[in-house]
Write a protein that binds this DNA or RNA. Structure first.
Lengths: 204, 204
DNA sequence: TGTACATCAGTGAACGCGCGTTCACTGATGTAC
DNA sequence: TGTACATCAGTGAACGCGCGTTCACTGATGTAC
């Protein structure tokens, strides 16, 4: 249903590695982290359960690839938020937060996997794609400082503040701890973030 | 090593239900969420692997009990932070954040279980103990408002801001995304939280 | 205080199942001449 | 263009294992008289 160029491309399957990761993401979404097995993932990709071993050393390697894909998607969506407001660093920061929450609320199990289990692994590639996501925010913070919208100071620390707040909001919103009030997500996250931005503003 | 009143108390084992939860927490800490099985938990509690069924309907019920115990511990530690600064609502808020992070960094897998898998369950008892944790913070926010340290307004929303930020910081600190600089945890979380508190301060 | 009985927490054997992983294979694709 | 060979992605049977759960049991504790 997703990729039209299915049986056209290259080798036997085409791009089984990619298809397996996507199947894993779908399964994660539908049944949760505990439900991911190599056999089910292979089944969803319509190959035998031994086929994944041509592309992944073991189950752990597949899980890491799924987490990587999550960060890559996150980077793309955050960068899209930045591109949306070319000359307005403040709007960029708010939009990054909004897009982050959209991703996290649409894919809660994926976010849990990315931060809960995998990021504690010692995998350099994974940490590189995670850092790439973080850098989108970090760069926006730097631009906001240059524009005089945020005060000078440790931009990495400010980015960490914002990331933390938005990540925490996403997790809470996914549970029932936060009010589930009907307002728009955009207003919700922006209201919260503005409280923080006020504390980080230039004191003019 | 932990409970001295072992073979003294009451029935056959004494308090197997409690011992099973504690064994689960230890296992969670040592080997991660995926490693929790009824059989291993029973083994750690030195009973046969069928014994847990006298206290839990199934594995899921044990997992929920482990998550509940986490929130109860969190409530106690947050309340201790409040009691530490009886007449200083601002210090109370900072100390709550510090204690929260201490808990989360000491028990990362437990926190992941609590928020990642279990809180999305429809279990009323679990949500009640989670709300009890949240209320400790909420009450502190209310007192800070009354003391004129935070501006008037939706205290529940302000508490959500703070909880989000501290929760997010805890998760990030557990990964390698945040700087791992050697500073004290106390200074770290307080520096971050103060940025937010400034945005929430009365504008006097 | 002592005996008979009821309760029920914990036992240990057994079940069927799905899992990750291995391995000899097959057959489609790419390459050399 | 056509043939011979090498490569290697995907197959399907097989493995041993640990899992959750059930069940008839046993034996320690609590209760009635």
């Amino acid at each position: 249903m997703d990729n039209a160029a299915e049986s056209l491309t290259s080798y036997h399957h085409g791009d089984l590695r990619h298809a397996l990761v996507e199947a894993g993401v779908t399964l994660l979404q539908a049944e949760g982290i505990g439900a991911i097995t190599l056999r089910k993932v292979a089944g969803r990709a319509k190959v035998s359960h031994a086929a994944p071993y041509r592309h992944f050393a073991d189950k752990q390697a597949l899980l890491i690839a799924i987490a990587e894909q999550g960060f890559q998607k996150l980077t793309v969506t955050m960068q899209a938020a930045v591109n949306q407001y070319t000359d307005n660093p403040r709007q960029q920061l708010l939009a990054i937060g909004e897009h982050y929450m959209q991703f996290g609320i649409a894919h809660p199990a994926h976010l849990t996997l990315m931060f809960g289990e995998m990021l504690q692994q010692e995998d350099d590639v994974l940490h590189e794609v995670a850092r790439a996501s973080f850098d989108v925010l970090l760069n926006a913070v730097t631009r906001a400082q240059q524009a005089g919208i945020l005060k000078a100071g440790d931009s990495r620390q400010m980015a960490t503040s914002m990331w933390s707040m938005v990540h925490g909001l996403t997790v809470l919103k996914g549970s029932r701890l936060a009010e589930q009030g009907g307002g728009e997500l955009k207003e919700y996250v922006e209201g919260m973030l503005e409280q923080l931005l006020e504390g980080l503003a230039t004191s003019s």
